[in-house]
Design a protein around this nucleic acid. Structure first.
Lengths: 180, 180
DNA sequence: ATCTAAATGCAAATATATTGCATTAATCGG
DNA sequence: CCGATTAATGCAATATATTTGCATTTAGAT
């Protein structure tokens, strides 16, 4: 349903913020699988029908919240060299996503009805890497082959998080990086 | 809920089969997002409560059906050499999973309440590759590094299918294989 | 300030999910 | 093969969630 609001101001924005806050609060107190739309509505102080109309269903609300939470709030750390910038970013990414809530956020983004959400989500990663490249460029370093980093490092990490077939330790991430 | 039946025979097995058949039929006729448990129950000729009790909820039923459909029914094709065996398998895997229903099956398996389903699902791939290795061994060929194939080929394919950030063409798959 | 249509709130109607209890039938021990 | 045991089912009642029509509010534009 409506990801982009047609009306930006006042009440509409307030409800969006309240719903996001409510979901965040509830997720911190209870299991995701127990969450319901009426619950969120109650916590946010709006009638359930408002949520159903604006978002569609529970999975859409959760996808919307998840992508909002994944949106980068700050520039990636500047460690002085591309190689360490990349390692820092990858280790942080792996740590965030391999937690229970991280994996669930990924699944929420992927399972929502909004076709563009998964694409947006991986664009966040892409943009991060472009920032590292821009920095490297200003330092005169060789640049990353971004698709190669995605395929060779990010993809295996995400794969093993989603399929839960191995732990994601820092050493494993470093080994993937070393293969580049 | 109950993935493994305690009672294997007669009615119980018949209901399981009927529910799987019903889901398959309905999925071929309508959109996944429109599917409901009462609908499946009606098509399968059982009361909805039976489905709720045995599986839990809709996402569990779909995960169960998806993993059953992904379970390999036959040995992978034998093309006479490991390299071509692997290429054949990968191209086939990519084609099956990159379709709309393939992507949805992956998500159903990953999102279901059964913790073991995602693991089982990627074990199917792992076993396939082991079969190729066993064959290669009998031919006296060098063996695949299976984790490297998963990380270097399968993971990027799955990543791009799930995040829908690029088409999965055969040439792309071949390029991934070439990097090994 | 006024107008217009999007967004909301409310409540009724509908659909879905849960649960207790009686019944059926798969499995086990003889 | 037969009866005993109990998991699994079917049914119906109940609780919960979702959808919808309509009046009202309000953001954004003129």
């Amino acid at each position: 349903m409506a990801r982009e609001m047609i009306r930006q101001g006042g009440r509409s924005a307030r409800i969006q913020a309240e719903v996001h806050r409510a979901v965040g609060l509830l997720l911190s107190k209870m299991d995701r699988s127990a969450l319901t739309v009426p619950m969120i509505a109650d916590e946010a102080g709006v009638p359930p029908s408002t949520i159903y109309r604006r978002w569609g269903d529970l999975s859409d609300v959760l996808a919307d919240v998840a992508i909002a939470r994944m949106r980068p709030v700050a520039e990636p750390d500047d460690t002085g060299a591309l190689r360490s910038d990349l390692e820092t970013f990858i280790l942080q990414y792996a740590e965030e996503m391999s937690s229970k809530v991280g994996r669930q956020m990924l699944l929420d983004v992927l399972s929502g009805a909004t076709d563009s959400a998964p694409y947006k989500c991986c664009q966040f990663t892409y943009c991060h890497l472009e920032t590292l490249n821009a920095r490297a460029m200003s330092r005169g370093e060789a640049l990353l082959d971004i698709p190669a980093v995605i395929d060779g490092v990010v993809a295996p990490i995400v794969y093993h998080i989603l399929f839960a077939d191995r732990e994601i330790e820092p050493d494993y991430c470093r080994a993937l990086l070393a293969r580049l």
